[in-house]
Amino acid sequence: MNAIEFENVSFSYEEGGAFQIKNLNFHVEEGEFLAILGHNGSGKSTLARLSNGLLEADSGVIRVFGEELTEKNLFDIRKQVGIVFQNPDNQTVASIVEDDIAFGAENIALPREEIGVRIDFALKAVGMEEYRHATVSRLSGGQKQRIAIAGVLAVMPKVLILDESTAMLDPRGRREIIDCVTRLNREEGITVVLITHFMEEALRATRAIVMNRGEIVMQGAPQDIFERHEELLTYNLTLPLIGRICKELRAGGLPVCDTLDAKSLAKEIAQCVSKQST
């Protein structure tokens, strides 16, 4: 089943203005890890806000788990599609971790005992159990962002959208977030949509989409997309460094396969070198 489905969706901020999203058709399958890539201003963030009704489409149909998104079922749709935004400082409503995570659960009017259970679940899911009573402003960027994820998880959505949630973090924070959502996807079965312009992050996804000027211009497995590297350049995207190295090595006559991390690349190189020397 499709978790999210767009059918001929268009959107512009002003009436008659330039389209942010143009006649878009795409879907997110239940349980998948989808990466949406695109340079700044390609319309990828608009996509996220349309998916749970923060923005209203000018035309077209958006379905969430088969149900058409309308003003009437907005509240129920938001229970199913959670979004984590970019700035770790702009998403928390309370000063204490536990109070902030409770916020979403309070909004959907859960009884108090259930909220307690949800907080436990959410903190565990992001690996921040020991920070339950911590002050949000004292946490690192990555930790704040994990609290933001926990805040969304407390509502128990089936789909988690990360709208450039790693853009403002340092490498360690970024890794924390990517590891966290990868695990949520694999272990909790949550559908993850990762919107990013860090190409390396897309390598974890099962499927990737490239957006340019409000349209989908490429889609497929991340590795296949990185193969088409000249095409990526025309959309203002560059290959992740590891992809570039693999490509250059191949061009130099060392037949390495595309890999995702340093360790497997080293293995590839070692294999090729030993083959060539024998």
Binding site: I83, I108, A109
Partner: peptide, 18 residues
Amino acid sequence: DAMEARCYTGGKKRTKFK
């Protein structure tokens, strides 16, 4: 946006954790 995305509607009946 973040509050709305977390199902905040202002007037609607909410519960209280603490």
